[in-house]
């Protein structure tokens, strides 16, 4: 809004008075994003409970599916699981347990779900984290090169390859790698985190883990990096028509400086958002990859819970997986604000 004749703003000697109040708006922004994340977390908790209680389908019947279980046994099981209590009472129990850090009790493992998850979360973070970092670096680097040399042979092969990888089902690629390099050529172990019964420690142990990780990481990277490449390429192409690049060229910058100093930092912004939005996909990848390679992580645990079926365990992995992704997105929002000064003033 204009107030063209007043003189309040730019008093000589009083520099900096019209700087936007960054500190306070930072708090507001964080609070807003935290509120959003909190609502999402609450929705996860609710969904985690109600999906298993309200949707058509009887968990106990599914549980008994394919097994010889009498009607009486099923009733006893219902009683044990508290499924005969009123819904609200069940919900209250679920909530209070959740606040005590409990996620129920696994039928199949006879162990609290929380303990199971605690032992499996490490390998999953190791696997997905490594794969994510490699994919981001690879995808962004190839993407920006492809965009800058748009139409070149490099661009065409990289885009083509990315599209093919994007069309490959993760588990099938995993199976192929497993058959070829694990079964056939025996270059890498076929499953697990470490060699069974290993007594190694220190560097040899790390080496063992790396050998076990290689195939699962390659599988995940192959499927995930393609998306990052395409997003980075598209957003850099978008930036390449921007007027400020003309300014930069007019100033006498070399083409590579125009790209690295001006175009890429701007193109990164939409890319970062999309990378974090695809974190959920990464988790999906973890489920299939861990299943194929018997990687003792949360994804494999989800598969085991699903094949049992073990509903408290499945509910637990759903809540934990979703919460992790929601929290990561919350951090992404904070990071985004650091990257994009335009958000700071808003």
């Amino acid at each position: 809004m204009s107030n063209a004749l007043s003189t309040q703003d730019l008093v000589p000697g009083d520099h900096g008075t019209d700087e936007p109040p960054r500190a306070s708006s930072w708090l507001k922004y964080t609070a807003m994003k935290a509120g959003g994340a909190l609502i999402s977390l609450i929705m996860v908790v609710l969904l985690g409970f109600f999906a298993f209680r309200i949707l058509p389908g009887d968990p106990v019947r599914s549980l008994a599916d394919g097994r010889r279980v009498s009607v009486e046994q099923m009733d006893i099981l219902r009683e044990q699981l508290g499924l005969n209590d009123p819904l609200l009472a069940q919900f209250w129990r679920y909530l209070t347990e959740l606040f005590q850090g409990q996620l129920g009790y696994s039928y199949t493992y006879n162990e609290p779900v929380v303990n199971l998850i605690a032992t499996r979360i490490g390998p999953t973070v190791l696997l997905t984290g490594t794969a994510a970092i490699i994919s981001v670096v690879l995808g962004l680097w190839l993407g920006q090169r492809a965009a800058w040399r748009r139409g070149s042979l490099f661009d065409k092969t990289q885009t083509g390859l990315a599209l093919v990888f994007w069309s490959v089902p993760t588990f099938w690629l995993g199976l192929l790698l497993l058959l070829l390099f694990g079964g056939g050529l025996q270059w890498f172990p076929t499953g697990g985190l470490v060699t069974a019964g290993t007594t190694e420690t220190g560097l040899p142990l790390i080496w063992d883990v790396i050998r076990h990780m290689t195939l699962p990481v390659i599988t995940m990277v192959a499927v995930v990096y393609a998306q990052y490449l395409m997003v980075m390429r598209a957003s850099l192409l978008e930036e390449m028509t921007s007027d400020y690049l003309m300014t930069a060229r007019a100033k006498g910058l070399r083409e590579d400086e125009v790209r690295t100093k001006h175009a890429v930092p701007n193109a990164l912004l939409p890319t970062v958002t999309l990378i974090f939005l695809t974190l959920g996909g990464l988790v999906g990848g973890a489920v299939t990859v861990e299943t194929v390679f018997s990687w003792p992580g949360l994804g494999y645990l989800t598969f085991q819970a699903l094949s049992a079926p073990d509903f408290p365990l499945l509910q637990g992995t759903f809540v934990v997986f979703s919460s992790i992704v929601i929290l990561m997105n919350f951090f992404a929002d904070l990071l985004y604000r650091v990257l994009d000064p335009r958000l700071r003033a808003a």
């Binding site: 959920g280 996909g281 999906g284 489920v287 759903f318 992704v325």
Partner: peptide, 11 residues
């Protein structure tokens, strides 16, 4: 958007 689609679909 953020909730892991495959895990929710599994559930």
């Amino acid at each position: 958007l953020v909730v892991p689609g495959l895990v929710l679909a599994i559930v």
